[in-house]
Design a protein around this nucleic acid. Structure first.
Length: 640
RNA sequence: GCCACUGUAGCUCAGCUGGUAGAGCAGCUGAUUUGUAAUCAGCUGGUCGGGGGUUCGAGUCCCUCCAUUGGCUCCA
């Protein structure tokens, strides 16, 4: 008999050789039905693998990330089985689970798999499901494994085998399909109830662009048909909110082939929206002791040689601009910090001057590979809400607190209330990879951790993810659809003060090196607004809305009254338009709804005689009549 | 940058195997003066992404460049 310990501390006795599935069945049939895999002493195992020693056991279902991963991994094998049945010449690469679903990289030789083939493969998978094949695990020797794939002529699997140690190699088989695989897998294919193959794309073998481009087929599966339906609805909703589509429809921004790829052009409505966000932050920064500065869009190559950016990124950037006579080389600025370092060093500083906080909405240009460009989220020219704080090591924590507070304010003001912070610290095993003294690193890392604790921010600490020049904190923001985005960032930097030989005179009358904090609550205005559009589906918070209301007169007869209403509202700082077209009220409402103007004020005979407006909220409908004053008070309160 | 897909009017899209372009919406003009998501009629609008080629003839076939989309790789 062996002892099995459950997560709640309970211990039960079972015969040696019992499986996780048996144990689940001993508890309840329902549980057994839901078990996908199990964690045995922290390692994820097949639910059907015999347990021979005393163990800790955690049963995993669809609700556990490992359960889902196993489910999708097994689904990838099922897809491979279908592919092999349909196209026997297929060679297989790897087929792992991913965040949402799975993929398999395959080489089909001359035969091209296209989107149209997916439904055929999907159908084949469904046929194979009927066999309810078990996923059978088998330990094999390296020699046996090599001879199997030699015979099958699968060069990719042979290459993978090369890197594996004899004695740790397992095969999994379901139906006629055998794969080299560490596992674990589902008990059998019957758990898979809904299948959708979503995409086909190219992917380099082992991610190496010098190697062969394979065909990657993406898919997703679920234990219930309903889950698939929900997933498809989610995808549909995401498509509707796509900032590229909404940006065009709402006339916020555009791109032009003639201006160039990846260079967003802000249209009046988008520019108004963005300016309001910038004004908001500028005001907050003034309150917090930041000094606005302005620096040029280009800088001499030597500036970036000094900062070290040239060495690291020079070849992969926009190439230098040359002066025609002197042949001097200038680079489009990829960052604002070198310019800001020059501002710091334009005069000597006393410790009494610190911290010095300089801020700039600085537009930077980075050469992104053409295939990487994507709407506003990945561009070649963008504006950072950049600021650099130069302070003493002792001031670091307070400065960090101030920045955290500001970033939280910014996110909340923009309607993001679901976010966490990722703290990236250095790899304690590899301290020599980083610049700066041990003492300073420890101080900085502790400052970040303490500061986040002080403001009660939920954090994840990742070791080894720090930049070589300092630890950092990134805000991970969840949008309305539950998708995570990395937006604002705060980075501590020991490197640039060193390279630019920045100094201050301390109370001991000796010169010291300041610490630098880079921070950008929005990150990039472009990217942030892209996320904001998708988060709000284009229905921006009222204070940002390019058009807060539209007055819709029932007919031309009420245009004069509409103008009076508009004047009254303008005096209160509210902005809006009058739809003076000779159109039916139904038409005006429809057009205004589609423009996502938050409020419609309908005025006709009734309103004119009572000095009221009929209020309609976008997406919600009629809110009834009230006086202009009543409505304005309500709106001004909403904006606050 | 690499692989694949796509590029036709301001927008969304149709145009079979080659026979010199079509719809809806938008826009313009006129009529309609309208009560909570599309009033009606007429009209304008395209060197079919750019360039080159094959052909008697190219939106359609071939080459090339540009851009978009989905991936790969990368991201100070």
């Amino acid at each position: 008999m062996i002892h099995i310990t459950f997560p709640d501390g309970n211990v039960r006795e079972y015969e040696a050789g019992v499986t996780a599935l048996d144990i689940a069945r001993s508890i309840s049939e329902g549980l057994a039905r839901n078990v996908l895999t199990a964690k045995i002493n922290g390692e994820v195992w097949d639910a059907t693998r015999p347990i021979n020693l005393d163990s800790n056991l955690e049963l995993l279902t669809w609700n556990d990330p490992e359960g889902k991963a196993t489910f999708w991994h097994s689904s990838a094998h099922l897809m491979a089985e279908a592919l092999e049945a349909l196209y026997p010449e297929t060679k297989f690469g790897i087929g792992p689970p991913i965040d949402m679903g799975f993929y398999y990289d395959i080489d089909t030789g001359d035969r091209q798999i296209t989107l149209e083939d997916l439904s055929l493969i999907e159908a084949k998978m469904k046929v194979l499901l009927e066999a309810k094949s078990e996923y059978q695990r088998r330990e094999v020797s390296k020699k046996e494994a090599i001879s199997y794939f030699n015979e099958k002529q699968d060069p990719y699997k042979l290459e993978l085998l090369n890197d594996l140690k004899d004695g740790s190699i397992t095969f999994y088989q379901q139906g006629n399909f055998v794969d080299l695989c560490r596992g674990p897998h589902l008990p059998d294919t019957s758990k898979i109830k809904a299948i959708k193959l979503t995409n086909v794309a190219g992917a380099y073998w082992r991610g190496d662009e010098k190697r062969k481009m394979m065909t990657r087929i993406y898919g997703i599966t679920f234990p219930k048909q309903k889950d698939l339906t929900e997933y498809l609805e989610f995808v549909e909703e995401a498509k509707k909110r796509d900032h590229r589509k909404l940006g065009t429809e709402l006339e916020l921004f555009m791109f032009s082939e003639r201006v160039g790829a990846g260079l967003p052009i802000w249209l009046p409505k988008g520019a108004a929206l963005r300016s309001r966000m910038e004004e908001f932050l500028k005001n907050e920064q003034l309150k917090r002791g930041y000094a606005p500065v302005i620096t040029p869009h280009i800088g001499k190559k030597e500036l970036y040689v000094t900062s070290g950016h040239y060495e690291k990124y020079g070849k992969d950037s926009f190439q230098p601009i040359n002066t025609p006579r002197e042949g001097e080389e200038f680079l489009l600025k990829p960052m604002n910090c070198p310019h800001h370092c020059e501002i710091y060093s334009h005069k000597p500083h006393s410790y009494r001057d610190l911290p010095i906080r300089i801020a700039e909405f600085g537009t930077v240009y980075r050469y992104e590979q053409s295939g990487e460009l994507h709407g506003l989220s990945r561009v070649r020219g963008f504006t950072q809400d950049d600021a650099h704080i130069f302070c003493t090591p002792d001031q670091l924590k307070d400065e960090f607190l101030g920045v955290l507070d500001l970033t939280k304010l910014v996110l909340n003001k923009l309607g993001f209330d679901n976010y966490t912070a990722q703290i990236s610290l250095r790899d304690p095993e590899n301290k020599e990879k980083y610049i700066g003294s041990d003492e300073n690193w420890e101080k900085a890392e502790q400052a970040i951790i303490d500061a986040t604790k002080d403001v009660g921010l939920e954090t994840v600490v990742v070791l080894g993810e720090a930049a070589f020049y300092g630890p950092k904190l990134d805000f991970m923001v969840k949008d309305a659809l539950g998708r995570s985005w990395q937006l604002g960032t705060i980075q501590v930097d020991y490197n640039l003060p060193e390279r630019f030989e920045l100094e201050y005179i301390g109370s001991d009358n000796a010169s010291h090196r300041p610490v630098m904090i880079h921070r950008a609550p929005f990150g990039s205005m472009e990217r942030f607004i892209g996320v904001l559009i998708e988060h709000t589906a284009g229905k921006f918070p009222l204070w940002l809305s390019p058009e807060q209301y539209a007055i819709l007169p029932i007919s031309d007869l009420y245009l004069d009254y509409a103008a009076i209403v508009q004047e009254e509202l303008a005096a209160l700082g509210l902005r809006g338009t009058i739809d003076s077209r000779t159109e039916s009220i139904g038409r005006k409402i429809r057009d205004t709804e589609l423009r996502k103007v938050p409020y419609m004020l309908i005025v006709g005979e009734k309103e004119q005689t009572t000095a009221q407006v009929s209020v309609r909220r976008q997406g919600e409908g009629d809110k009834g009549n009230m006086t202009v004053k009543e409505w304005a008070d309500q709106i001004l309160a909403e904006i606050k």
